[in-house]
Simulated assay, not measured.
Amino acid sequence: MNGISNVQVRPERIEFVDALRGFALFGLLMVHAAEAFGVGLSRGTDDPWGQAIFFLFGSKAFAIFALLFGFSFATIMANQRGRGVDFTGRFAWRLLLLLAIGFVHSLLYSPEILRLLAFLGLLLIPLDRVRSNYALLAIAGLFFLQIPLLIQWALAQSGNAFAASEPYYARSGLWDVFRNGSLGELIRANMIEGNLVKWSINWSFGRVSEIAGLFAVGVVIQRTGFFARIAKDRGIALALVLIAGTIFAILEFIVKPIVPGSPSGAEFAIGPFTERAILFQWIGISAIAAQIGLLALLWNSPMQRLVGLFKGPGRMTLTLYVAHSFVAVPILYQFGLGMAEVWDTQTRILLAIAFFGLQILFAHWWYARYRYGPLEWTWRAATLNDWNVPLRKSAQPA
């Protein structure tokens, strides 16, 4: 035994996870709208609307996605093991397909997260072979220590110029292409420069190690049936809100103001930058724990119908996430309508909320007729190399 008991998966847990995934999708849309899908990255969001969105969802929505990615992986592997199937090779193929989808998506919107999740998702295969949940949590803890960043910091302290240099993304001209480039220039820049910038950002802010740690925690959550319990037990949900919320408040309002950052206009300083990157990781982790607890409280209350609105989008996050960019980028970027320079942050956020409302209606309509979202079906069929996977609900499942 693992020391942490494994429990049987319950159907109620699946619906709560769908709602949680839909909530994360909503959070990503809000962050992207606040920064005008990359056009506003170079100038930041200093207005109250932008600050509120980043307080609620910045470095948090993507973390929920990473947690659920590990959770979903463990669910798939457990289901296949129950059928006597070793799904390891097929899952690696599934990740390669997601990487391809993410690459095509990144040609239009390079800050997207699919490539990162797909590439780092390969770590889940060896993690699945660790049968002890305690060992998995210890591995997650090692990832959360941000050892690569600390090594870089130590190298910088010893005089290594490369380790002490300003991150690559801060010197990139990609943001100018976002603001002023043609569609062809955008695609060419995103193909190479966009990938370099993407990895620079995720390395510099410790997201590579953080995502790996969240993957491991997601596997443990699936094995222990934690989401099934928290969605039905208000005591567990309340305890999570209180404990995680207290930690978040201490880090956000007490520790964060006293941790130094590089002054505006000053030469880049690796030490304060690394300190804040590690601090922001723990702020984000404590925040998503509190958010999960709060959503579970609402789920187990008369507010379940409201939280349940996220279920539909949560079942087709791949389709809707890609759709965000294919709708927003031509509207906001200069090669299209150029509305990023016309709409302020408040307008973009309100329009994004309305757009997500339409996606809720679309998901409700779609799932009344179909089993999977469009990209979800394509991904599933390609993973299984079986294009007879039934899509319509009238069709008999294989």
Rank of each mutant, 00 (worst) to 15 (best):
E15M: 05
F16P: 08
L20R: 03
G27F: 05
L28C: 13
E35F: 14
F55E: 05
F65W: 08
S72V: 10
F73V: 08
R94H: 15
L96Q: 03
A100G: 15
F103D: 01
S106T: 06
L107C: 08
L107R: 03
E112S: 10
F119H: 05
L120Q: 10
L124I: 14
I125H: 09
Y134L: 15
L136M: 13
L150N: 07
F162G: 01
A163V: 01
A164Y: 00
S165L: 05
V177Q: 02
N190M: 13
E193P: 00
R207N: 15
S209F: 05
E210Y: 06
G213K: 00
A216G: 05
I230A: 02
A239K: 15
A244W: 10
I250W: 13
E252K: 15
P260E: 13
F268L: 04
I270W: 02
I270G: 00
T274F: 07
A277C: 07
I283H: 09
A287N: 08
A296E: 08
W299A: 11
Y321Q: 10
Y333P: 06
Y333T: 09
F335P: 12
G338S: 07
L351M: 12
L361M: 12
Y367N: 04
R369I: 10
Y372G: 05
P397K: 08
A398Q: 15
